[in-house]
Each structure stands twice: as structure tokens, then as C-alpha cells.
Design a protein around this nucleic acid. Sequence first.
DNA 1: CTTGAAAAGAACTGCCT
DNA 2: AGGCAGTTCTTTTCAAG
Lengths: 151, 151
Amino acid sequence: MTEIDDTDRAILRALAADAYANAGEVGRALGISQPNAWRRIKRLSDAGVIDGAHVPADRAGLGFGVTVFLGIKLATKGATRLEEFERAVIAIPEVQVVQHVLGLFDYRLRVVARDIADFERVLRRRIMVLPAVGQVEANVLLTEERRDGPI
Amino acid sequence: MTEIDDTDRAILRALAADAYANAGEVGRALGISQPNAWRRIKRLSDAGVIDGAHVPADRAGLGFGVTVFLGIKLATKGATRLEEFERAVIAIPEVQVVQHVLGLFDYRLRVVARDIADFERVLRRRIMVLPAVGQVEANVLLTEERRDGPI
DNA sequence: CTTGAAAAGAACTGCCT
DNA sequence: AGGCAGTTCTTTTCAAG
């Protein structure tokens, strides 16, 4: 395991606030030199703590106005069934996130669609036809707020 | 609204695949010139379609091994209650995402904790004490897979 | 819309404390 | 470990076809 000290945590906070911040900016913000910041960022990257960045495209602006969260309970389980289901569900373009979870449901999906009619098409033609799908629960996203969480 | 043509969509796909790709790489991938790719990326940024990148820190590596999704149904509603609840819940450091949703639940939360014991502390001391919390459902994250979704 | 080139800035290296 | 000064590389901007 790599040691992560308070300076590293401060760097992670700075990068969480601005993923495009460079070593110079991060260093200035923390009061350490650019090469020092650079070395630490590189160490964190090499250790896999920082692993690439993600560009959140504006779905609504791209014509995908509807986001729905599905909770899915499989009718039949077993290792083969789970893998089969995961492979099938990740292949659906409208599915953004597949979460294997423990609790009332077995899987949670984040699905985007152009509108409710489009979502119904995805649900009926793509999701409900998957092998072993049992109970399905849906929640339509109204607003979403993200924080960086504890670092 | 800004016009987004197929080339822009291709650029968004390229950036979704690699957020750190520069104008030169994107241009080469699409068969357009570097300055042209650069201008388009800048236009998309200025238009807000691309709005910064997000660095997904490795929670497990930082000592937050447990991620739980909570579905929350409020006991009492009304505009004031909703705003009150949202403000209180977003102030909890362990809460990463607050989604106001339509369906069986009113809110969905993504909560991180060091371990199950730590999660129980957050749930009892932070979540359950919030005003108007009614029914709560929990799902513990096992594995998560993300795709870029349709662009 | 392209090429080419120069200016600005960031990444990386080695040396010193 | 961390800072300083320098080298190399990329990005960004501009001029011209």
C-alpha cells in the first residue's frame, strides 16, 4: 500500500475541485513547488489512486432529457446467470452504469433516454427481455447534486 | 442553443474515451486538422457542453471501502420540507450524490463510509435524524461498471 | 480549412539543501 | 522530503495560402 499523507489528500481535493489543474496550479494552491506537486501527482497516478478523468457530457443538451434508475431483482441467480445478465445489460447503449448490489435488489442501472417514450422502448425491448429479469423498480431523475465526498 | 454536428459528437466520444486527449490526438483520430479540432473543442467548452472533467479518486484506496445507495421516502412533503431535507443531506460529508427522484422513493443517496460499522454510524447519527425521513431502503455496492452511454 | 512557425506554458530532470 | 534552475516537449495562437 502507498502512504497517503495530508499533502496528498490536499492534492486530491484540489484535483477533485478542478480536474484540469496542472502541477503548477496545484503547487501554488498548497504552497509547495511545482516539481514537488508534480512528483506527488505522478506518484498518485502511478499508484492508481488517480486513474484518468471523466468528461461528463451534458446529456440534456445532447438530447437525452430523461434519466431513470432501475432496481432489478433477478428471478434466477447463480454465477452464470449473473455474468450473463451483466454482459447483456452493459451492451445496451442507453445503460450508463451497472451496479451489482446487495439488498432488496440485485442490480441497479442508470439509463438515459431521449424522452419517456424512448425510455419505454428501452425498457420493453431491451431491459425486460434480458434473461432472468424478475422484479423491476424505476425512479425518474428530477435533480442531481454531487459533492466530492470525504477525502 | 449551439449547433452540434456529427463531428462534434465524434469529438465528445473521443473525449469520453480519454478525457486527457489533446486537440492533436482528437484531430488525428477523426481525420481533421489539429487547429480545427482545437477550435471545436474550445467551442464545446465555451458552450458548456464539455464542462470540466471529474477525477474519480479511488475510494477504497483512500480507506472508504463501503458504498451504499439509500432510497429515502419522506414522511411529510411540501416545498419547504424538500429544500430543508436537501440542504441538510448535502451537508453530510459522507454523502456523495443526492438525487431527487420520482417513483417509489423521493430521494436516492450515494453514501461512502470506511466500513459497515462506520456506515451504521452515518446512517443512525446523520441520516435517520434528518427531518421528515420516512421509509429507508439500502443497497450495498459490490461492483460497478460504467459506460459512456449514447452521445 | 490547411500548413507552418513562433510564443507561451507545462512537463520532466538533475542538483542542491 | 522538498526547492531551484534549467531543458524538452506540448499547447496555443497567429499569419499566410
